[in-house]
């Protein structure tokens, strides 16, 4: 139903028109030429927490605490309406008594009574507060998502740039890069769920691609350690680098080698609990410290310090490489 229909009905029957006005869900006022309220619908009383006595027969500008007494709105109603017949969606943001701060969209339509030629004004109000809030929330989310996408692109770029190209085939480079992507994706997946964001779940997820080819990896039955999402992401990547190195140079490069991953939680009195995690290789080829530090090693050390707030010690012991990570456990 549009206003024309309503207008026709108003001509036909006052009672019927009143019924229609009453069923309209948005607040509606019928105002006389001097902007006195002639009638109001139940939605108006409901929305503005007011009643008949404080509404009917009063000037629009005097309703409530004078919240409609806005110079710009007065100008519209007093000058524009007589010329243009209607105003649509004029936004009023103000404090309403007993209702609070609201954003209202006001529309007004001039009608001329068919019998006596009297002018009345239909004044309808839509509470757009929730809609506005949703729009703000939506913009915020889009912004946040945009930020995350760009961040993830930066991370992708970092991995691509830092994965070494020196002395390897394109295929080899691609596999190494895809391995890191996969580790990142797995870690993010684990980190996204509180139930899995912990040891040993993270270790199992991170090691899964390596377990297929290397049944020689033993993940000890250590205590459950809850991880924050950033701890889980970084630890997942660290484990991937350890496994990749082991497969290339260490115990997992031979059929006889084994890797044991275990951890414990140590709490000294007065200081927060610390996680000690140990990666130990055995039975592989004799190892020696590499002549230069690769990205994998840098990532392990840097990430443990920067992201986990701890320290990593990598020992190239003759009978097998050992990595020991110590970092504060998250308390929450």
């Amino acid at each position: 139903m549009d206003l024309d229909d309503l207008y026709r009905l108003l001509r036909v029957s006052h009672v019927q028109a009143q019924g229609i006005v009453d069923t309209i869900r948005d607040p509606l006022l019928v105002l006389s030429g001097d902007l006195t309220v002639i009638s109001a619908n139940p939605a108006f009383y409901r929305t503005f927490a007011t009643d008949r006595d404080s509404t009917i027969g009063r000037l629009l500008y005097e309703l409530g605490n004078g919240q409609w007494n806005i110079p710009e709105l007065r100008l519209l109603l007093e000058n524009v309406i007589p010329k243009s017949a209607s105003v649509a969606d004029y936004e009023v943001q103000t404090e309403f008594p007993d209702v609070g701060l609201r954003t209202m969209l006001v529309s007004a339509q001039r009608l001329i009574h068919p019998d006596n030629g009297r002018r009345v004004l239909l004044f309808s109000i839509v509470d757009a507060t929730a809609r506005r809030q949703m729009e703000v929330a939506k913009d915020f989310l889009i912004n946040e998502l945009d930020h995350r996408i760009k961040n993830l692109m930066s991370v992708t770029q970092a991995l691509t740039r830092q994965t070494s190209v020196e002395g390897r085939s394109a295929e080899d480079y691609r596999d190494a890069l895809l391995g890191r992507f996969d580790a990142l994706a797995r870690s993010l997946e684990v980190a996204a769920h509180k139930k899995t964001s912990r040891l040993p779940d993270l270790a199992l997820a991170a090691m899964e691609p390596h377990l297929e080819t290397a049944p020689a990896v033993v993940i000890a039955e250590g205590p459950v350690v809850q991880l924050s999402s950033s701890q889980a992401t970084s630890l997942g990547l660290i484990l991937h680098e350890l496994a990749t190195n082991a497969a290339k140079y260490g115990a997992l490069s031979t059929s006889s080698g084994t890797v044991t991953l275990d951890w414990e939680v140590v709490s000294d009195e007065g200081s927060p609990a610390k996680v000690h995690l140990r990666w130990q290789e055995r039975g592989g080829p004799q190892v020696a410290a590499p002549s230069k530090t690769g990205f994998g090693t840098r990532l392990i050390k840097f990430t443990t310090e920067f992201e986990l707030g701890g320290s990593a010690e990598l020992s190239y012991e003759p009978h097998g490489f050992v990595a020991e990570l110590g970092f504060p456990s998250q308390t929450s």
Binding site: V155, A158, R161, Q162, S234, F302, F306
Partner: peptide, 23 residues
């Protein structure tokens, strides 16, 4: 704050002979 980006920035700058504080 993103550790992989921090590590990447550090490498970028060290590659051209800058000294890095932090990250």
């Amino acid at each position: 704050d993103e550790f992989l980006i921090a590590l990447d920035l550090q490498s970028m700058l060290e590659d051209v002979g800058y000294a890095v504080l932090g990250p």
